[in-house]
Design a binder for these strands. Structure first.
Lengths: 202, 202
DNA sequence: CGGCTTTGTGAGTCTACGCTTACTTCTGCG
DNA sequence: CGCAGAAGTAAGCGTAGACTCACAAAGCCG
């Protein structure tokens, strides 16, 4: 990888850093590792980002945007509310294979509690995610296809909690979590609970 | 804190380390910090544990045991299966205030993925936890008070996922997650889903 | 009391990390 | 072409963290 214009190099550094942070965590991934993996020397990192932390925060923001955009894209094709909810459950980037690699950075970051700026970036992401989910659940409830037993607010949290827990265990490499010996998956459970017996995973 | 017999010092070191790991994470908490907080110098740590990692793993094991013992203790008083399930939901150490401080060490550890030995200790804990929950759900289903719509296996995973997600957001300090503006709590949702409309949080 | 074991410490060593400095090469544009 | 400014590098500074060594005090038992 030769000489690159600033904007491209910046993106490439974020890509490279994402992979390393996902595997080693924030503290575990070193700047020299990142530089080497990007085929560049350390000062280059510091030309594009003020500090390692700054790079990480930029990465959280980018990941947050990409995640929601991806999810919205999956929903875009569906208009019918029940179908939208079905897709919402099915394409959860914390759970679905697609997107999970990307999202691992966030899950990793979640417990890097000591730095207040990192924490704030993550809090913002969680609030954004919750707002997004709430809107969708609201929509599904308005359409009358989904039980109004619980508020969109609370349902939104349940979806986040469930997804996050799933993501953490996946990141840990726990085998066969989230499924039983009949091959039934946690996503089916969620779908049936929200959409009734008729639910089928795609 | 003066001179202590080995066994006591070991426990005290674990106590002290638990607090620091909970706040700063594994990489963030330093051995000199732990030593100072325990009112002792660093070599003492290395008299009782082979390495920082060794200390951490010992802590994971202890926490795992304490957590399950605590939960079992809460259940012990109840014989009637529905009541047991209610308590199972209510006293979840990942969610309930009690025990959450203790459990934060585990949640923190969850994303410290790089070290294989730490990972193994955590995997063991998750399997233990799942076995415990599965047994309880099975029991509740056998008694006929709880729907058999989903296998105990899958239900157990759902409980873990939900609890873990809750724990992570709590560790992050996200405000008001897991409740709506009417004050309804995620625990109520879980209770109603598993036990029906009659469920009331204690 | 005397001597042996156990608990403790002060002062390091060594390594690795985040970040910087001083310099060189490339490239687009007037 | 020439040269300004952007992209890149080699080498190293300062610091902090995990871990150790050589030695001192405290407890215990005949």
């Amino acid at each position: 990888m030769g000489r690159l214009p600033a904007a491209q190099r910046r993106e490439q550094l974020l890509d490279t850093a994402a992979k390393l942070f996902a595997v080693h965590g924030y503290a575990g991934a070193t700047t020299s590792q990142i530089a080497k993996a990007a085929g560049v020397t350390e000062p280059i990192i510091y030309r594009h980002f003020e500090s390692k932390r700054d790079l990480f925060i930029a990465l959280i923001h980018r990941t947050s945007e990409v995640t929601i955009r991806l999810w919205e894209h999956e929903l875009a094709a569906a208009i019918e509310p029940a179908e939208r909810l079905k897709r919402l459950i099915n394409t959860n980037p914390m759970v679905a294979n697609r997107g999970r690699g990307v999202y691992r950075v966030i899950v990793q970051a979640m417990t890097e509690v000591e730095d207040p700026k990192i924490l704030e970036a993550l809090n913002e992401h969680v609030r954004t995610l919750h707002a997004f989910l709430m809107r969708e659940v609201q929509r599904a409830q308005d359409s009358g296809n989904v039980s109004k037993r619980f508020s969109p607010e609370l349902t939104g949290w349940a979806l986040i909690h469930l997804g996050l827990g799933y993501g953490v265990l996946s990141a840990m490499g726990v085998q066969h979590h989230g499924e039983d010996s009949q091959g039934r998956h946690i996503v089916d459970l969620l779908g049936e609970l929200m959409l009734g017996q008729g639910y089928k995973r795609e």
